[in-house]
Amino acid sequence: MAATSPYLVAGSFTKVAPHHTSVEALWDIKWRKPCSMGIYPFVDGHVEDFDRRRLTEPYDPDTFAAAFFPIAKELEEKAAQAETTGDVKIASQLYLRVAALYRIARFPIARSSKTSEAWTLGKAAYMKASLYLDPINTELTIPHNHSDASAGDGNIIHAYLRLPPHASAIEKVPVVIFICGLDAYRTDHTSRTSEHIRRGFACLSIEIPGTGDCPAAKDDPTMVKYS
Rank of each mutant, 00 (worst) to 15 (best):
F69T: 05
R32Q: 12
N137A: 02
A66V: 09
E83I: 14
V23S: 04
D44I: 00
S147Q: 10
T138D: 13
T141I: 05
H146E: 13
M127L: 15
L131Q: 13
H20L: 12
A151R: 15
T138M: 15
A125W: 04
D28R: 14
L55C: 00
A129E: 04
K73A: 15
G45H: 03
V43A: 03
E57Y: 03
D148Q: 15
G86F: 12
K30H: 12
G86L: 12
T63F: 11
G45D: 04
L26Q: 12
D60H: 10
H158E: 03
R111G: 05
S22G: 10
P61N: 13
A129F: 02
A105G: 00
V43M: 01
G38N: 02
K33P: 00
A25C: 04
E117K: 01
L26V: 09
L131R: 13
S22T: 15
L26N: 09
Y40W: 02
D153L: 11
T84S: 15
R111T: 08
C35G: 05
A105W: 07
I29H: 04
G122H: 02
R97W: 02
R32D: 11
S116C: 12
I136A: 15
E83V: 14
H46N: 12
I39Y: 03
L101Y: 00
W27V: 02
Y59W: 14
S116Y: 12
S150N: 15
V43R: 05
D49C: 07
I142P: 01
I104W: 01
G38S: 03
W27L: 02
D49N: 13
D60V: 07
A105D: 03
S22R: 13
G122I: 02
T85N: 06
D153R: 07
Q81P: 01
P135A: 07
E76S: 15
W31Q: 12
V47I: 14
G122K: 02
D28P: 00
L96P: 03
E48I: 06
G122Q: 07
I109W: 10
I156G: 01
W119N: 03
F42Q: 05
S36D: 09
G154R: 06
V88C: 10
L101A: 08
P34A: 09
I157W: 04
V43H: 02
Q93W: 05
I136F: 12
P143Y: 01
H158D: 01
H19S: 14
S147N: 13
S150H: 14
P108C: 09
S116G: 05
W119L: 07
A118G: 04
R53V: 11
P108N: 02
A25M: 04
E57R: 11
V88K: 13
R111K: 09
M127Y: 12
D134E: 14
T138K: 14
A67W: 08
S147I: 04
R103A: 02
A105P: 02
V43L: 00
E48R: 03
I71G: 00
E139Q: 14
